[in-house]
Structures are given as structure tokens and as C-alpha cells.
Amino acid sequence: MGNFEPVIVAFCCNYCAYTAADMAGSMRHCYPPNVKIVKVPCTGKVDVKHIMLALRKGADGVYVAGCLEGDCHFKNGNNKAALRVARVKKILDEIGIEKERVEMVTMSAGMGKDFARIAVEITEKIRKLGPNPVKNISAGQSKLATG
């Protein structure tokens, strides 16, 4: 596990976390390349299905980064996302996979430094947890059509 480099998927809202990630870059705040950003129009658009798919495909950790409480551009998409993250945690618990692999975080577009800090913290947490237990088999699993 010594050289385990976790793959982390971050669903980032266009109006806050994604802009904060940009700002982190322009302010020269480093964050680990382990974090793969998926830009979404609002975290309310992130479904349980998407988070589960990322984990099933072998992501070691997933987090959803939305606007601060009360600041969602679409009223309450961030609150909905938090409930969905909670449901994923429940499912992971049911199947015996560490629920700490998923997290909901909030920030504003101006919080570039915090974006970098959170990315570091989550990467370190997942590094300690070790690889997603489904990872190796997932890589070999044949891809099936869905309908």
C-alpha cells in the first residue's frame, strides 16, 4: 500500500467549487492530481447513481462540492446533494464498504485556498483507508450494455 495513489472523483458545482478550483490554480495553491474534477451545473444534478457508478468503476473516493448553505444558485441543490451523499453512505454500509469514501463539502467561489486544503485532506483520508476493495475486479469486469 506504500505507493498507493488514490483516484478521487470530485463533482464540483460550476458556481462555487469549480470556480474555487480555478482560483486555487491562479493563486498557486497546490492540490493533489489524484482529484479528478467533474464539472456539474449544480450539485443538485449529481445523483446517487452517478456516485455509485464512480465507485463501482474503481474510484477510491468521491466527493461532491457544492455552494455554502443558503447560497445555491438553484435554491437548494446543495441540500439535495447532501441527502444523496447520505444515501450512498447508507448503501456502502449495507454492502460493507467504508462509507468514509464519500463526502459532501461546501465552499464559495472565492475559497480557492479551502478548495486546495479540502482536496489534500480528502486525498490523505482516502490514502489511509487504502484502495477501494472492488478496484481490481472492477478493472477486469466486462462492460455490459444497459437499457
Binding site: K49, M52, E94, I95, G96, I97, P133, S138, Q141, T146
Partner: peptide, 16 residues
């Protein structure tokens, strides 16, 4: 949607 979620959950439970 629930089909997709359960499908992922079951596949992960097996892979584990």
C-alpha cells in the same frame, strides 16, 4: 434510476 443504483451496489458487493 433505482435499477442503476441497485445494479452498482450488487456488483460492488460481489466484487468485494
Amino acid at each position: 434510476k433505482e435499477v442503476g443504483i441497485l445494479s452498482s451496489a450488487l456488483q460492488m458487493a460481489f466484487m468485494k
